[in-house]
Amino acid sequence: MEVDKGKGEAEETRKVAEADRDTVTLKSSDGKLFEVSKEAAARLSTVLAGMIAGGSIDDNGTDLKQIGSEALENVVDYCNKHANSIPSAALISSSISFNTAPFKEPEEWERKFVDRLSHDALFDLVEAANFLGMERLLDVTCHKISEMMKGKSPDQIREVFNIKNDYTKEELEEIRQELAWAFYDD
């Protein structure tokens, strides 16, 4: 939420702010200011936790030059929502007996949170989460991206993500060979 806009959530943020520096102010690459609960920021982002512990937080807005205002707004929104949500007895995904790591399934509100994002916003958010070392938000965003490609052919995936097919026919054959490295078929 932008600080100077009098929305409900901003009000709440201000209330928390009044309880003396319980928030940190973050500044996006395009100079917009956002306030976020210090506790949530420290808990959800290893990078912000490090900055808070190291005293490198600027009261006038800590510069996050890599993150645009839309992505930063989503990050802050996520932190605030996370702070307000009651963590459910976490659902470990059903792949216990398999080699995929047991990822925590996103909770309902997290699903809704990423579902409403445009593809572009999702891309910016996953990069921001990566930059800020937000493991849980990375989980949620990468889960969403994987959902978008499940069961789709390479062609369909390219269409969804607007990716150009930069393979030549020869390269496809080459990669096919390379991937089959240790095995062959007479």
Partner: peptide, 8 residues
């Protein structure tokens, strides 16, 4: 398995 087939 299909993921690498999307782009280089």
């Amino acid at each position: 398995l299909r993921f690498p087939a999307v782009c280089r």
